[in-house]
């Protein structure tokens, strides 16, 4: 029996809701970027929705989380305030950082979000520190960090893995292997492309899963969280997935073929999970309703965030120091 076998109809629809909240956000943000309302780099994760969606059902508010600059899906599924999220993405007062942090630095300590990060791999030791705090205080929380395949070439990731294993930190290491580190393929970045092998050196249990199958993701995360909560230490999950959009809004995508992208689009986690819902006898009307509600909720939050003011120049020097 797999943990996902006992998911209720409401749980399944919650996964579906997380997926569509993320997709709706990306669709709207892409439009805002094209319209010139949203400036700067926009890093989206179209095609990777199963991972944040399943995470939302496993990671609790008290659990600590770090994600990448592509991690807004996790920020949404962690239950962070929508206006705080979109306000910050738009650089407005009322965003998590009142416009000082921006898209790559979404942080919400009240909800255990220790931060998205603009430095590849840097969130891994920070999340391990969240796990260390849980261990020192014994508060029963766990930590999770999400990073890409490219991050496994950063030294700090390996340093943190060694320490997490050594100290049995309650930590989930979720690697989103989308086959490309920015614009460079995994095969051109790493001699060993089975990333679980990297973990054998640290004695960290590692598994490779289909990252586009939300239930497989849920099972892996549930087991990893259970191990973390019961003192068994970290787990590494290599979730195979694919980013069907560019690395950022201006990506020329010269490093892969359209055919390759189209093949992966057919394996979209949204298409797959819709089928799962139908297989599990969730009625079509509920599937459509939840999707529509998710889209409406996100669009209305973005509408609200668009009405927020830009920060005043007077705020420029505040909060450099606590």
């Amino acid at each position: 029996m797999r943990p996902s076998d006992s998911l209720s109809r409401d749980d399944l629809l919650l996964i579906w809701r997380h997926m569509w909240r993320m997709r709706a956000a990306e669709t709207r943000l892409t439009q805002l970027s094209r319209d010139g309302v949203l400036r700067g780099s926009l890093h989206l994760a179209e095609g990777q929705e199963a991972l944040p969606a399943a995470t939302g059902l496993v990671i609790r508010q008290v659990d600590k989380l770090t994600v990448t600059y592509r991690g807004h899906g996790y920020v949404l599924s962690k239950g962070c305030d929508l206006v705080g999220v979109f306000g910050e993405i738009l650089g407005r007062v009322g965003g998590f950082g009142n416009g000082k942090g921006g898209k790559m630095h979404l942080t919400d300590l009240e909800n255990g979000l220790l931060g998205a990060n603009g430095i590849v791999g840097a969130g891994v030791p920070i999340a391990a520190g969240g796990g260390l705090a849980a261990k020192v205080t014994g508060d029963g929380s766990i930590a999770m960090t999400v990073f890409g395949d490219g991050a496994l070439n950063q030294g700090c990731v390996h340093e943190a893995c060694n320490i997490a294993a050594l100290w049995k930190l309650p930590l989930i290491l979720l690697c989103e292997n989308n086959l490309y580190a920015e614009m460079t393929s995994l095969a051109r970045s790493s001699a060993v492309t089975d990333l679980t092998q990297r973990m054998t050196a640290y004695g960290i249990p590692a598994l490779r899963i289909d990252g586009n199958d939300a239930l497989a993701v849920y099972d892996a995360l549930w087991n990893a969280a259970d191990d973390a909560r019961s003192g068994k230490g970290p787990t590494f999950i290599e979730a195979m997935t694919y980013r069907t959009c560019g690395h950022y809004q201006a990506d020329a995508e010269t490093y892969r073929t359209r055919k390759e992208v189209e093949q992966w689009r057919k394996k979209s986690p949204l298409i797959r999970f819709e089928k799962t819902l139908l297989d599990r006898k969730v009625e079509r009307s509920s599937i459509d309703d939840v999707r529509r509600q998710a889209e409406d909720e996100i669009n209305s939050a973005i509408d609200q965030a668009l009405k927020l003011p830009s920060p005043s120049v007077e705020s420029l020097r505040s909060n450099v120091f606590a």
Binding site: A128, G130, L132, A133, T137, C156, E159, N162
Partner: peptide, 20 residues
């Protein structure tokens, strides 16, 4: 700790943000 200055500060940052 092991001899690993970047991770020491990284872990300390996480622990500090978590309230320690």
């Amino acid at each position: 700790t092991p001899i690993v200055e970047p991770a020491i500060v990284g872990l300390a940052n996480g622990a500090a943000m978590a309230g320690l």
